[in-house]
Amino acid sequence: MAAGGVNPLSAVDWGAPWLEPWRLLGESLARRAVAHGGAVHTVLQSAAASNAVADRPVGFGPQSDLPAGTAYEQFIFDQRRVPTRDNLHDFFNGLVWLQFPEAKRRLNQLQAQAIAADGVQVVRGPLRDALTVFDENGAVLCAPPPLWDALRARDWHRLFVELRPLWGEARLVLFGHALMEKLVSPRKPMVAHVLSSPCALHSIANLDGWLATAIQAGTWASKPFVPLPVLGVPGWWPANAEPGFYDDAQVFRPPPLQRSGTGR
């Protein structure tokens, strides 16, 4: 999986707070992949076929399954099989398919419909772009209204400092597999594109069903997400307890109107 035979799955810290919802299944699959030479599609397929995750919408195969010139999303839609490389990116993608099968199927359905209507273009249209942004870097956040108000306003000091105790009532669940991959080597600027979720959804299965219903072509083309620097979340990164952590304007950026001064 990597030069020199080092398997990058060995570098995943499954104790990281952002991986808590993924640890039970993900850690066991990663260990099996490492033990069996890193064939990611093999361990994902065994999980998909097991009783523990029965009735999943797709299977997994090697990247060589994808014919040259065939769109990746279209292949998954037509064949119900995910071409998978032996790397962190595709491991986390498979893990999301296993945990959020209905939401992933809905994203794939809309991607395939857009490809059928418009073809594979050099630049994705607004809907496909939004679907890809969330698929790669999305998250869902259940939080009290004052936190959401501060987040939408990008009032970072209020969000993370003044309202810090309220984060004990919030729950942020990562969805984007590229974001999970990047967080294996955490850096302060990493951003999730966050969607508001109902706080009554306590299980991943219920969250999956809600998200699959929430993903709608008519509204998602406008990207109904809010950027959130994830390492600013209280309890997710020790450094954010230090004074001045949120003063970094290159990461915790003011709203566009404030940045431009006049808004023109």
Rank of each mutant, 00 (worst) to 15 (best):
V120H: 02
Q63H: 14
D90H: 11
D86E: 10
G5C: 03
D65P: 10
Q63R: 15
D129T: 14
E181K: 09
R264W: 10
G26Y: 07
T262V: 01
D13A: 12
A143P: 05
L183N: 08
D149R: 15
S203T: 15
E162V: 13
A33N: 03
Q258R: 14
R80M: 05
A16T: 05
A68Y: 15
G4V: 05
V6L: 13
Y72F: 11
A33D: 02
W22T: 06
P17N: 03
Q111D: 12
G119H: 01
L172P: 02
W210D: 09
Q109I: 00
A54I: 02
R253A: 14
S28V: 04
V173E: 10
Q216Y: 11
K223C: 12
F75S: 12
A221I: 09
R106Q: 15
E181V: 01
F245K: 10
C142K: 02
G15P: 01
A212Q: 12
T219I: 11
G15Y: 04
A49V: 06
Q258D: 04
A249Q: 15
R253P: 01
E20L: 05
S10I: 02
L141R: 06
V58H: 06
P243C: 04
P165N: 06
K188Q: 12
G5Y: 01
P8C: 08
P227K: 05
A170T: 08
G261N: 07
A52P: 00
K223M: 13
G15N: 14
A112Y: 06
N93V: 05
L127Q: 09
R259Q: 14
P189K: 00
C142W: 09
A54W: 06
A39H: 01
F245S: 09
I76Y: 11
P234T: 08
D86V: 01
V133P: 00
F60C: 04
Q109H: 13
S260A: 11
A114H: 13
G94D: 02
L257E: 12
P146A: 10
V133R: 13
A239Y: 06
G59D: 13
G69V: 06
M190V: 05
G261F: 04
W167V: 03
A249G: 06
T70C: 13
P243S: 07
D149I: 03
E162L: 08
G15H: 13
E162I: 08
T132H: 11
W220P: 05
Q109G: 02
Q45P: 00
T132R: 11
L159P: 05
W237A: 01
W236D: 00
R106K: 15
W156N: 02
V173Y: 01
S64I: 06
D247W: 12
L141D: 03
Q111W: 03
A11I: 05
V140P: 05
L207P: 05
P67C: 08
D78T: 15
I115V: 14
T213W: 14
Q121P: 00
A130R: 09
A11S: 15
Q121I: 02
A239S: 12
L231P: 04
